[in-house]
Amino acid sequence: MLATMRECKNCIGSDVDVDQARGNAVCMGCGLVLEDNIIVSEVEFVEGGRGGSHAVGQFVSSEGGAKMPSFGNAPLFGIGRESRAQTVQRAKQHISNLGSQLQMNQYCLDMALNFYKMALNKQLTRGRRSSNVIAACIYIVCRTEGTPHMLLDLSDLLQVNSLLPPTFP
Rank of each mutant, 00 (worst) to 15 (best):
M1F: 02
M1L: 08
A3H: 14
M5D: 14
E7Q: 14
C8P: 08
I12P: 02
S14A: 03
S14G: 11
D19Y: 08
A21Q: 12
G23K: 07
A25M: 05
V26P: 00
C27P: 10
C30W: 03
C30S: 04
L32A: 02
V33S: 04
L34Y: 08
L34T: 01
E35D: 14
D36F: 05
I39Q: 14
E42A: 07
F45D: 10
V46P: 02
G48W: 05
G48Q: 13
G49D: 13
G49A: 13
R50S: 14
R50T: 12
G52V: 04
S53Y: 12
V56K: 15
G57K: 03
S61L: 08
S61I: 01
E63W: 11
G64Y: 10
F71E: 10
F71G: 02
G72M: 06
G72I: 01
N73F: 07
F77N: 12
G80T: 07
G80L: 08
E82V: 07
S83M: 05
R84E: 14
Q86Y: 06
T87A: 11
T87C: 05
V88D: 09
Q89T: 07
Q89Y: 09
Q89M: 11
A91M: 08
K92G: 00
Q93E: 13
I95T: 01
I95S: 00
I95M: 05
L98S: 03
S100Q: 11
Q103H: 10
Q103E: 09
M104Y: 02
M104W: 05
N105E: 11
N105Y: 05
N105H: 08
L109V: 01
D110Q: 09
D110E: 11
M111Y: 01
A112Y: 06
L113Y: 04
L113H: 08
L113W: 07
N114P: 01
M118R: 15
M118Y: 13
M118A: 08
A119P: 04
L120Y: 13
L124K: 15
R128H: 13
R128Y: 12
S130M: 13
N132L: 11
N132C: 04
V133I: 09
I134R: 04
A135C: 00
C137W: 07
I138H: 01
I140S: 09
R143F: 00
R143I: 03
T144Y: 00
L152C: 03
D153Y: 03
D153M: 02
Q159I: 07
N161V: 02
S162D: 06
L164C: 05
T167V: 10
T167R: 11
